[in-house]
């Protein structure tokens, strides 16, 4: 199970990198650079479904369609064609469009948030993000307290 997850993750990352490089491109040639990564994920994934299969000669032949994989950029689906155990074609069937479905923005109830805001030191916190402090402002910042505690 662990291996499958890792394998799927690698594929998703590879495709995400591809998508990042070529936003909006869906054509098959764009898949070439990640063909090996796509192939391993699609072929070894739990639900890869061969549409044709013929174990002729030395290796697997056929066309395999992977399940759509969720990536941070949206769903990605890949189809590969193998001939005698060699990858001959990889096609990206589904990529997130640059302007895909709208994300739903969540609204929080601020008075309740204020009541719950974490007092410094009451939770394990390793570092602090906030508006950029000046060198002077740092002295009274939570980050400076964390730095002193860890020094």
């Amino acid at each position: 199970m662990r291996r499958i997850l890792l394998s799927t993750g690698t594929t998703a990352a590879g495709i995400a990198a591809l998508v990042a490089l070529k936003p909006g491109h869906t054509a098959a040639p764009a898949a070439t650079p990640t063909a090996s990564g796509a192939a391993s994920g699609a072929a070894s994934g739990p639900a890869a479904s061969p549409t044709t299969s013929a174990a002729s000669g030395s290796g697997v032949s056929g066309t395999f369609t992977g399940d759509p994989a969720e990536t941070p950029y949206g769903p990605v689906q890949v189809q590969i064609t193998m001939k005698d155990g060699k990858l001959t074609k990889a096609t990206v069937l589904q990529v997130p469009s640059e302007h895909g479905p709208e994300r739903e923005i969540v609204e929080f109830d601020v008075p309740r948030l204020n009541a719950a805001a974490v007092a410094a030191g009451s939770a394990r916190i390793d570092t602090i993000s906030g508006a950029t402090y000046t060198s002077e402002g740092y002295r009274t910042s939570l980050q400076s307290a964390l730095d002193r505690a860890g020094a």
Binding site: V118, R124, D126, T127, I128, S129, G130, L142
Partner: peptide, 8 residues
Amino acid sequence: WRVGITDP
């Protein structure tokens, strides 16, 4: 890592 976000 746990990163706290400062309350402005």
